[in-house]
């Protein structure tokens, strides 16, 4: 059996428990559910809220270099600290935070395989005590949006050039049957469907029942069977960019694709964009 391309970025729950007191390690919980951290978290873990901490509060964009430095410094993360992310929803937001950290070139980052659900399922310890660390003086690199982030104009050119896109939403969203769940407010986009040429490979196909990533061979087969191969320039998208950061992580770090980007504007931008081409069978 082959190995993940970057096995060092994925750690298990047992490994994390063994390293709880490692002073050079910071564990960071990133959830969709904003109060789950308060319900109980891995002892010593800090909270990073994707909405409050990582996003610009006014413009639809991410924090800038100063903001990033402030977030890390306030969590006691120094330039030599390794950060292990974990969270709910099979690590959607953990991989999203990981991706935002990579915009700033933060290399000492890992994901706890299986996320919060696996830690809880294994009855590992949880704490309600808020972890506090002395502030550090973190110095960040400038944010670089050119390598792993895609913008709508780039996606337009990508489509025109016939390059592959992965739509990681549910098949119902992909087919334009749903903008959201049936019977509920169909909000978030004016139109349903998918970006022309995009292949539908739901993010969940990459994980097992317990939330851990499938084996390298299984992942390779999953994407290869849809024509998503490492020699290509690949863009992943979903509704707001969180599920697709999960797929981005799998393609880039587990399969080692050299060029894969996350289109964080995703369907909430494309499905609202005037004259944007849409495929809907």
């Amino acid at each position: 059996m082959s190995e993940y391309a970057r096995p060092d970025v994925l750690v298990g729950t047992a490994w994390v428990q063994e390293h709880l007191t490692d002073p050079n390690l910071r564990i960071a919980e990133c959830d969709e559910d904003v109060l789950l951290y308060d319900v109980g978290h891995i002892p010593g873990a800090v909270k990073i809220d994707w909405h409050v901490d990582l996003q610009n509060p006014v413009v639809r964009d991410y924090i800038n270099k100063n903001g990033f430095e402030a977030v890390l410094s306030s969590r006691g993360i120094g330039n030599d600290t390794t950060v292990v992310f974990y969270g709910d929803k099979s690590n959607w937001w953990a991989t999203y935070a990981f991706w935002v950290f990579q915009l700033f070139g933060f290399e000492k980052a890992k994901i706890m395989n299986g996320g919060r659900q696996k830690w809880v399922a294994e009855n590992r310890p949880l704490s309600q005590e808020k972890a506090k660390y002395p502030p550090t003086y973190f110095v960040a690199r400038d944010r670089d949006d050119n390598q792993i982030r895609a913008f709508r104009d780039q996606v337009m050119k990508h489509v025109a050039a016939g390059n592959p896109l992965v739509d990681v939403r549910s098949p119902q969203e992909y087919h334009g049957e749903l903008l959201a769940m049936p019977g509920y407010p169909q909000e978030g986009a004016m139109r349903g469907g998918h970006i022309p040429g995009a292949r539908n490979i739901p993010w969940s196909k990459a994980v097992r029942e317990d939330g851990t990533f499938k084996s390298p061979d299984e992942l390779k087969e999953l994407y290869q069977s849809q024509g998503i191969t490492e020699d290509k320039d690949v863009i992943a998208y979903c509704r707001i960019g969180e599920r697709s950061s999960h797929t981005w992580f799998a393609l880039k770090y587990l399969l080692g694709f050299p060029k894969v980007r996350n289109y964080d504007g995703s369907w909430t931008e494309w499905g609202n964009l005037v004259e944007a081409p849409i495929e809907r069978p």
């Binding site: 969203e173 049936p182 019977g183």
Partner: peptide, 12 residues
């Protein structure tokens, strides 16, 4: 209304 428990749709 019929009970709708399709919360998993978006998380598939």
């Amino acid at each position: 209304q019929p009970i709708v428990l399709t919360h998993t749709l978006l998380t598939e």
